[in-house]
Structures are given as structure tokens and as C-alpha cells.
Design a binder for these strands. Structure first.
Lengths: 127, 127
DNA sequence: CCTAATCCCTCCAGTAACTAGAAGGTTAAG
DNA sequence: CTTAACCTTCTAGTTACTGGAGGGATTAGG
């Protein structure tokens, strides 16, 4: 798989895929004879994992920890479990926050009459 | 309310609160005699709205649109509704993505035995 | 009233994580 | 065999903060 196919599959720009290998977040991919980067499904799954983590506010450094664990032959199952559980709690907190952002906007949508008048009940709240 | 109280209430660093007024994302706050910025509850609610939007990957420019609407005296209710509905769909897509990230890590946690052995079923998937 | 701690201010420089563009080599379709 | 769509490296720019210097204002204790 060339870089553009991997980038499409992962949902990341080509430039970003290169960048992640440059900074050592993922392993440097192998190269074709012409020097083209070649990717496999496991690499793509890692990129998807990073993309989703990044989209929800985890930093690059915070992505390194779980990714490092997956690759570390000496880690114990207990260590993997501890770090993943901590991350899971952070994600659940994000889910609650996202839900309240959702509810706030849903309220705006349902209270607006959607007509041509400029008044809208939400203005009293946010204006 | 001084800037540090507003910053605590909004869940944003003081520097970031100043920055948002500097770039015109929120209105420049009024000042005390000594030149201190003073904030009210409506300003704090706007800052919370921005914080949550930013945490979930909306850019500063994408925050301007709904915030602008709230303040625009000439907008129609239909326009408010259209933009808020579009944003709501984006948020629902983010909720689905966050759920996938959650499930992926939850799988990691439940399949790990949590003992001192270094093997873990998730490695086959991501390693 | 004085002093120390804790605010607050502005300004400038630095960082994280990309992202755009130039210059040029490679591959696949017609 | 050309030409369009790939790919490469490199450097420089952007977004959204973030840290620190230097200095004024406010508050709590003695």
C-alpha cells in the first residue's frame, strides 16, 4: 500500500502520515525500490488509533504511551490494563462533555422557531 | 469578576482567555479603573462554549460562526437554526468516533488478563 | 501605615502539530 | 512516448496557544 492509500484508509493527510514517522510516533515504514513508503493494515490501524486520539484532544506524547505498550515486548498485561483503564476514564469524561455540548446546541435548535424573525430564546442565555 | 475567576469558571487558562479577546473571538471585556478586565456570567458561558468546541476539534474559525450568530441582531431564526443543526450533525459524528475509540480501548482492557505475563490479545490486532 | 503575597498588566519569544510549496524523480493510462 | 498523477526531500509558514520578563495594583497580616 502506498502512502496515499494508507492516508485515505486512516483518514489522515499524506503530510501527516509522513510526519508521524518523522517524529517516531509510528515506526518508519519500509520502502519500495524507488524509495516509496509502503504500508500494511496494522500500520493503518495504528494511524486510525492516533487520529481518533488526536481528534479528541490527546497530545502526540499521550499517544506514545499506549502505542509504545503495544510494541513493548517486556510490558506486563497488568501494565497494559492499568494504562488503558486510565485512558478509558478520560474518554468517558470526554463523552460526558461532548454530550453537554450536544444538548446545548440541540436546545438551541428546538427552541428556535426557524422563521424569519430575528428573535431566538437562546440569545438570552448566551448573548 | 476578574480574569482569574472567569478563567476558573470557564475552565480555561488566564492566558487563553486574554488571547480569545485579542483575536476578537469574544468581545473585549470592560476594564476596571486600574485596567483590570472584568467579566460577567454571559462572557463565561461563551468561554465554556468555546472551550468545549475547541476540545472536540472545532477550529477557532469554526467557533466564530455560532458565536457571531448569537450576537448578530440581523440574523433570522431560520439562519440560527440552519447553522446550529449543521453543527449538531458534526457533533453527532464526533460522538460516534469517540464511541469507537472507547470501544477499542474497552476491548483492550477486557481482553487483558491483568497479570504479570507479557502476552495480550490486542497485540495481534495493533502490533 | 508598611510589607509581603498575590493578583493584574503588556510585550515578546517559544512550542506543538501540522501544512503549504518548491524542485524533482517514478509509475500507469492512453 | 507523453502526460497526469503519483512519490520524494527540504524549507518555511500557520494556528493556537504558552512561558517569562518587567512592572503596576490589591489584599491580608503585623
Amino acid at each position: 500500500m502506498n502512502i496515499s492509500a494508507a492516508s485515505k484508509a486512516a483518514g489522515l493527510p499524506v503530510k501527516t502520515v509522513r510526519y508521524y514517522a518523522d517524529i517516531g510516533l509510528v515506526q518508519a515504514p519500509s520502502r519500495s525500490d524507488a524509495g516509496y513508503r509502503t504500508y500494511d493494515d496494522a500500520s493503518v490501524r495504528k494511524l486510525v488509533f492516533i487520529r481518533r486520539s488526536r481528534e479528541f484532544g490527546f497530545t502526540i506524547e499521550e499517544c506514545r504511551e499506549p502505542l509504545g505498550l503495544y510494541q513493548d515486548q517486556d510490558r506486563t498485561s497488568a501494565e497494559v490494563k492499568r494504562i488503558a483503564s486510565k485512558r478509558l476514564e478520560e474518554i468517558e469524561e470526554k463523552q460526558r462533555e461532548l454530550q453537554s455540548l450536544h444538548d446545548e446546541l440541540a436546545h438551541l435548535v428546538t427552541t428556535c422557531r426557524g422563521d424569519h424573525m430575528p428573535d431566538c430564546p437562546i440569545i438570552d442565555y448566551l448573548g
